[in-house]
Amino acid sequence: MATKIRDIMTAPPRTVSPETDIVTVARTMRDDDIGAELVTDGDELRGIVTDRDLVVRGIAAGGDPGKIKVGDVVSGVTATIGPDDSLERAAQIMRERAVRRLPVVEDGHPVGIVSLGDLAIEKDDDSALADISAARSNT
């Protein structure tokens, strides 16, 4: 059983520039079957953009989605975790901050991402969340 974040994180993380339009990001998420990308400026983490951000802050706000930039809808990073931190620490941070995903940062640079589903699969593989997280996409 995994004990460290590096054992279950998705690496390398998908990253996107704040200048990328939200349609491009939405297509990448669809094609790669992911729900979030880290927003970076060069090698520096600026935030995280989720599929929900694209819909709620982007499309629902109106305007031309092809002209709305990720930087306009990005969620700021409220917490990060290191690759050598424990799974329990990740669960604690997610609970305290009410987030479903954490960027994994090492030496100030994003090296991965870990989700609530990743933790569920590893810690409680009989749970409904683990089953849903491990299932193949229905799209």
Rank of each mutant, 00 (worst) to 15 (best):
K4V: 10
I8S: 12
T10S: 15
P12M: 15
P13M: 13
P13D: 13
S17M: 04
E19I: 02
D21Q: 12
V23R: 12
A26Y: 03
A26K: 04
R27A: 05
R27I: 02
T28M: 12
T28S: 05
M29E: 07
R30Y: 01
R30G: 01
D32W: 12
D33P: 02
D33Y: 09
G35Q: 13
A36I: 06
A36D: 04
A36V: 04
E37S: 07
T40E: 05
D41N: 05
D41S: 07
I48R: 00
L54N: 00
I59M: 07
A60C: 04
A60F: 03
G63Q: 05
G66Q: 08
K69Q: 13
V74S: 00
V74C: 02
A79I: 09
P83T: 05
D85V: 03
S86V: 09
A91Y: 05
Q92E: 15
Q92L: 13
I93G: 06
R97A: 14
V99I: 14
R100T: 11
L102G: 08
E106R: 04
I113D: 09
V114Q: 12
G117E: 01
E122F: 02
E122T: 11
D125Q: 10
S127I: 06
D131N: 01
I132E: 06
A135K: 06
A135D: 09
S137C: 02
N138L: 14
T139V: 08
